[in-house]
Design a protein around this nucleic acid. Structure first.
Lengths: 337, 337
DNA sequence: CACCTTAGTGAAACCGATTGCAATTACTTA
DNA sequence: TAAGTAATTGCAATCGGTTTCACTAAGGTG
């Protein structure tokens, strides 16, 4: 068997409780005893059992990450790795680990959260997914379990969340196109089931309104967050209208939009300008390099983790939220007309 | 406090051990008792505590993932998310979770592994990193702890690993260029500290040899696995030689190589052809679209996880390895001359 | 000098499960 | 009818720690 705290205690001629206190660096233990215990630990090659420790102390020093839908989707969109990167940097600094549970569907996702929370496997949770239909948020709130959400939830009362100003960002993007002389501007997003899509649609409408451009729902389409999704959405629009520019709320989708335009005999940006969202690494190298809204994905991860840790440490931490700024990155996919 | 197995036992008028057996679906418990216990669990909203369970059963149902270097680097290279995707799909199917520990440097990395293993936090480990200097592998082998490595380790005796045939893949890439009439072929890779770089260099040399092309070390350069790394390496080569083609062992680096060529007044592929490695999503959309070696990154993850789980379940599973096939993806970055 | 702190340590309960072994009952079998 | 066996279930030890409370001895106070 492995060497336990009792073995150490025996060797150092102290009680197990004393060894435990030495590990926790309890100030009530004398220097001499500490040294004796450390020596014994060293000699025996002792290493504390994290599981046993968690059981007794009810702390796990790990934070749970819930990826949206299937893991397959999640990792193929660079948004998620990037936000994970932010989270893991903070977690690592604070000596927390990440427990990732991947789920196939909404039902499994809920189960995964329950497993983590009720199974006491994590000290807190970051939700990477806020669908409008999310039952998770009310549940977690009711359980009084620490969690933060990336993406403002529909009902944000009493929950910690981190997000961009999506309405503002979309308005910024649309206004940019309008200032470039476009008036027939299409808007392509993911499913309106997501709050983010809703908000960006609002921002788009707002910009049109400010410039007295009538809203035309034939210029708007939703589809999956994927290259194909972008392609299909653009194709549907092109069958009805001839926009001179398009706002696409995801860079990956933008690639599909470009492909659709080309298949339709249109050149980007000569015939149709295009502004994306997220500024994924790919965007800079695309053809043409994509003008896009940088949403500071990394920071989204960082802030969500920071907020969560605050929440974990302060029992009675109040609900809070953080708005992460966006930035328009000008490249070559938009022209004046 | 939370409802425990004892509460359930009391309510169902049985002993805690019986409840435990019901949870484990032990066939020696009668149907009636099972039903009674299930009912009690239902009524009390009982949920087993995973930590306590792990402590007693010594199983965690989670597998540890060690990311290379800082998490920052790890997630910014699409290779890692993709292999994680493979791992998490398998893990999810087998009801395992993923515990990710990110480390800043080699020392921390080792500590992270020790934490996981000695802390009994995981049932097995997937190493995403095989430096030639790795001390981790001998250590894990000695501890008899289940683990698999992605990337063939230098000393592969008694370890489970998954990899491509890197020598063959590199030879394939090089021969492709040779068949296209190139003879001044440069080779750019990451640090030779990595086994993979070493192997690919060997494949490159092999192809040259087969075609009676002398090896010229001025055509070879190593640098970081990044866009800048590729740029710098290519610049160093261009200062000495004028290759008509180059093998780059990482697509991200390829982008830097392209940029360097352009800065040097060279066109790709007109002046210099280029073949990459990894077939990251970016490659298809690059300018020009990158001809590259697809290494089935996803499968690398899948196979490594499968191998690990076999190892966890079969106490005396023999060391094994799996070679994942590669495929040359022809696009537009190479021309005949 | 009697009493009160204070520092340092140990004993034992507890965290929430699992599991080997014993015990009980009912049923065979010789 | 005594004894062996199979089917169920309970007891209690165990996993490896943490933490409350009590206790001892030393030093401080009036």
């Amino acid at each position: 068997m492995n060497v336990t705290i009792k073995d150490v205690a025996q060797r150092a001629h102290v009680a197990p409780s004393t060894v435990s206190r030495v590990i926790a660096d309890n100030p009530r233990i004398s220097k001499e005893t500490k040294e004796r215990v450390f020596k014994a630990m060293e000699e025996l090659g002792y290493y504390p059992n994290a599981i046993a420790r968690s059981l007794a102390s009810k702390m796990t020093y790990t934070i749970g990450l819930i990826m949206p839908r299937s893991a397959e989707d999640a990792f193929s969109n660079p948004f998620f790795p990037e936000v994970m990167r932010g989270i893991s940097v903070v977690a690592h600094n604070e000596k927390y680990d990440l427990l990732i549970s991947t789920s196939g569907n909404e039902e499994e996702e809920k189960q995964a959260v329950i497993d983590m929370v009720k199974g006491r496997r994590v000290d807190g949770i970051v939700l990477l997914c806020s669908r409008t239909t999310d039952e998770l948020i009310p549940w977690l709130r009711e359980e009084k379990f620490p969690f933060t959400v990336i993406g403002k939830p529909l009902d944000s009362k009493g929950v910690c969340w981190v997000d961009n100003d999506n309405i503002g960002a979309s308005r910024l993007a649309t206004n940019y196109l309008i200032k470039h002389g476009h008036r027939e501007i299409a808007f392509i997003s993911g499913s309106l089931e997501f709050v983010v899509s809703l908000d960006r649609l609002d921002g788009y409408k707002l910009a049109l309104e400010e410039n007295n451009i009538p809203f035309d729902k034939e210029l708007v389409a939703q589809d999956e967050f994927s290259e194909d999704g972008g392609y299909n959405a653009m194709m549907r629009i092109l069958k009805q209208k001839k926009p001179t520019a398009v706002v696409v709320t995801d860079d990956i989708m933008s690639f599909g939009v470009i492909r659709a335009a080309i298949d339709y005999g249109l050149k980007v940006p000569q015939d149709v300008s295009l502004i994306g969202f997220n500024n994924i690494p790919l965007s800079a190298y695309a053809n043409p390099p994509l003008t896009t809204i940088d949403i500071s994905t990394f920071d989204l991860g960082v802030k969500s983790a920071e907020l969560l840790l605050k929440n974990i440490k302060n029992k009675d931490f109040v609900a809070d939220h953080i708005i992460v700024p966006v930035k328009l990155i000008e490249r070559k996919s938009c022209i004046k007309r």
